[in-house]
Computed example of a mutant assay.
Amino acid sequence: MKWIPLWMHRLSSPPTFYRFATVMRPWFMALAVILTAVGLYGGLVTAPADYQQGDAFRIIYIHVPSAEMSLFVYGVMAAAGFIAVVWRLKLAESVAMQSAPIGAAFTFITLVTGSLWGYPTWGTWWTWDARLTSELVLLFLYLGVIGLYHAFEDRRQGARAASFLVLVGVINLPIVHYSVKWWNTLHQGTTVRLFGASKIEGDMLWPLLVMMGAVHLYWAASLCGRVRTDLLSLESGKQWVRDLAQREGR
């Protein structure tokens, strides 16, 4: 197993990632914008109204991708946080910490759009439903990670401490995902399945899948930008940063 840290160190070199992020970020963002336009047009214009909810269901094209990203980003943070705690890789620390504000934003959007969707569906803006409550706990976890990270003067020490909190909070992810199965809940069950038939018509499904691709690309673009800036700050005394500053200064 000794090859794993060496493999990680080679691929997680800050200057290597900086170059990768510089090249890929514009592509990620451009594709995200294109897919967002296609997905929203498909969801808001071409998809038919739901036979029960009418046009109110169309908020699904914002709510579901955001909800999926709230879990996905935390999972990425947990993987990066584990690497940061075990092998103390600077890039892993940066990925974990710079993902937190993005994940918090997606979680907040999930709660707001869920509330807007819940009122016409359930007749209330909020209920202490198992899915909603565990999603709110997820937002608090994101905010806790951000706060703990910034509570330390030494940013790397703060990143490792916050990574422990991320790893403890992983237990909430299956609770969010399976809450509709484990408890009696108002929230509807899973409608989109990677394996097996989805419980949604194809002309409603494809815009949703496009929007999911769009938010993943947006996350990648945003993360590339945030980690690039963070690495420049963390590595400010290194030769590669000085060389970069000289080249861009010309």
Rank of each mutant, 00 (worst) to 15 (best):
N184T: 12
R19V: 15
W125H: 03
M77V: 06
A130Y: 01
L136I: 06
W7Y: 12
G237S: 00
V33W: 09
M29P: 10
A162G: 00
M211P: 02
G54N: 04
F140N: 02
A214C: 12
P207S: 06
G225M: 01
I59K: 10
A104Q: 00
A37P: 10
R228S: 13
L208T: 02
M212A: 12
L234W: 03
R10W: 12
R242S: 14
G237K: 00
Y178T: 08
G39S: 09
T190L: 15
A37L: 11
A221E: 07
Q98R: 12
A67V: 07
R226A: 10
S70P: 01
L143E: 03
V45K: 08
T229A: 10
A151M: 05
L165T: 01
T191C: 10
P120W: 03
S94G: 08
E135A: 14
R25Q: 15
K238W: 11
D203Y: 14
Y51H: 13
R160L: 14
I171D: 02
G237A: 03
G81M: 00
A245F: 07
A105E: 04
I34L: 15
V176W: 01
W182M: 00
T113R: 02
Q98W: 00
Y74I: 06
V76H: 04
V45T: 09
F72R: 13
Y149T: 08
A96G: 08
G75T: 10
P15D: 06
G114D: 04
L208A: 06
I109V: 12
A49C: 11
P207H: 04
L232P: 08
S179P: 00
E68H: 11
L111I: 06
V145H: 05
A104L: 00
D129Q: 07
L167P: 03
V45L: 09
F106I: 00
S115E: 03
R226P: 04
V23M: 15
A100Y: 04
F17H: 13
L148A: 06
K238R: 12
A78N: 05
W117A: 01
G202V: 08
I62N: 09
G54H: 04
W183I: 07
G196V: 04
F28Q: 10
G123R: 05
M8K: 13
A197Q: 15
I34S: 15
P14K: 04
H63R: 02
A30V: 14
W27T: 13
L165N: 05
L186K: 09
R156E: 13
Q157P: 11
L186H: 13
I171S: 09
N184Y: 08
Y41A: 08
M212D: 13
A151E: 04
E68F: 13
V227W: 04
F195P: 07
K90N: 08
Q98C: 11
L194Y: 11
D203K: 15
Y61N: 04
I34R: 14
I200C: 10
V215I: 13
G202N: 14
Y41L: 12
L143A: 02
S94K: 06
R155M: 12
F152C: 04
S115T: 07
L141A: 02
W87R: 12
R155W: 06
S94E: 08
G75H: 06
H9D: 12
D203Q: 15
L91S: 14
T113M: 00
Y61T: 04
A130F: 09
S198R: 05
H177P: 10
V45D: 07
V210D: 02
A105H: 08
H63P: 09
F195R: 14
V227N: 01
Y142L: 02
D55N: 11
I102V: 07
